[in-house]
Amino acid sequence: MEINILSFGKIAEFITINRLDTDEIFDTDGLKQQLEKTYPQLKEIKYKLALNKQIVQKNIELLPGDVVAIMPPFSGG
């Protein structure tokens, strides 16, 4: 299954891929685990996922071609 990845802010500095091809990820929780394993920096910061432009508030099943955005908070003004 192929998932599209969009990273924002600081996260884009270490998650530089925009596609993830995997047979082991089925849902957003699984994706989080996988990302945090591959990119340990992600575990150190707060972030939020959006699936197909909808904020992820609970575990959701992933389908091929889904777009997952990974967003950190910004504080600057």
Binding site: L6, K53, Q57, A69, M71
Partner: peptide
């Protein structure tokens, strides 16, 4: 890039 928000748990 616009995200639709919903209340958290």
């Amino acid at each position: 890039y616009e995200i639709e928000l919903s209340p958290g748990s």
